[in-house]
Design a binder for these strands. Structure first.
Lengths: 237, 237
DNA sequence: AACCGAAACCTGTATAGACAAGATAAGAGT
DNA sequence: ACTCTTATCTTGTCTATACAGGTTTCGGTT
């Protein structure tokens, strides 16, 4: 109904992901798409540019748009998707276990990361993720209490993102990820099946709302042998 | 001169990166920008959307565009930038050393990765990167020989990307990155100052040209303590 | 059959205008 | 002083049109 260009975008994204449109297939020309969807050319182009930016198609001047095979068969840890969305895509049996859920006073470092005062309480959520029978991810979330009044065991074991967007109507807008490798802490050793691996992959996530306020800081700690990050990037200019 | 919207984009990107435009500053409205640059509103919007997509600004409906402070003070390993471009940005003393440069017949795995036949020769370039006095990155590049006829020591120690774009006029269009963590090989131990670290971060890079042909496969092997990957992602929809 | 050039088709950039909807500021009335 | 309404400013979506510059096609010439 609303958002014509997103409709076109989702239409093709779905058809490409499902394999209905095969790799190297030529999409209809922009002119043909305007007639197919009853939209103007600029609207069609907006959809096509989104598809190109996300790695679905490649646009070639004078020739047309072609389906890329880059993104399929990969689960994108890139971008902004919650663990639940991710697990659903790869189709593997996965489970989230809540380790602890409490409100704490942030230490210096954390207060600095969240841009809040040291007396402002925050939620601390510690969860482990089990995939394929092995507990390999430790997630530590810190959320601003003033923005998230209520948080329960059930919500944490389902999806915090979903709760935020559905119930609280807080829209997540963008995030900054930082990936580093560190030595595992005793906590890592305790909660994860480290199997003697001497290092751990740390994905720090700074999550922002639409008004650009930072409201969540997440540390996702992965056992190195099971870690895999996929990124698609275009060279602009 | 050409590309009005890129001019506007670069103008603001530069001003934000240099700190001339401070965080939380409100940009002129789209209407004001049309008059400032003598451009139409759609052209201005194209520039602003690019800025938003790359993490420079946040657009808020009904209010305006505001400078974000997310991307500054970070060197983006994300996106598509060559090591030379990267080293220039962080300003640290860095050096590239060529270990070997030869044409080889690809093994099964490599031929598969590059989508070529096993009898088609490829360039194998092995280089080490030294930053701040420590040799911490091992780069192994494989390029299709039919697309890159000549390759010399001087080119490899400068920047292969620059050579491709300037001399051969081959435009790099997009890339797929995969980050994993592995055990170091004897070659890693031999060429890098591993300092006893038992793991190595492997960044696999599949680089494509504008006609979507895969022409380069790169494996960048980083000592774990010096590895850092930064990513900015927007949640669309 | 091979070559060349013009037409037709395709995407890239840019413009001007229209309406919707969110946010703010000003003003009227209480 | 306070509240509610209204006007104004702002961004989001969409349309129609124009020209530039690549790519392909096709027909005529050699």
């Amino acid at each position: 109904m609303d958002n014509k260009y997103l409709t076109i975008y989702r239409d093709f994204a779905e058809r490409i992901e499902s394999g209905q449109l095969r790799v190297r297939t030529k999409l209809p020309s922009e002119h043909e798409l305007t007639q197919l969807y009853g939209a103007s050319r600029e609207t069609v182009r907006k959809a096509l540019n989104l598809l190109a930016e996300n790695g679905y198609i490649q646009k070639v001047k004078g020739r047309g748009s072609f389906v890329l095979g880059v993104n399929r068969f990969e689960f994108p840890v890139s971008g902004l998707v919650s663990f639940k969305e991710l697990a659903a895509r790869i189709g593997k049996e996965s489970r989230t276990r809540l380790v602890s859920l409490e409100t704490v006073a942030p230490n210096r470092e954390l207060a600095d990361l969240l841009h809040i005062r040291a007396n402002q309480p925050v939620w601390e959520v510690v969860r482990t993720r089990t995939i394929g029978g092995e507990t390999i991810i430790l997630d530590k979330d810190y959320l601003r209490r003033d923005l998230v009044p209520k948080l329960t065991k059930a919500i944490c074991e389902d999806s915090i993102y979903e709760y935020l967007e559905r119930t609280l109507d807080q829209s997540i807008s963008f995030a900054k990820k930082v990936i580093t490798v560190e030595e595992p802490t005793p906590e890592d050793q305790d909660l994860l099946e480290m199997k003697g691996y001497p290092m751990i992959v740390v994905v720090q996530n700074h999550v922002y709302l639409e008004d650009a306020t930072l409201f969540q800081y997440t540390e996702s700690r992965h056992r190195p042998d099971k870690f895999r990050f996929v990124d698609f990037a275009r060279r602009h200019q």
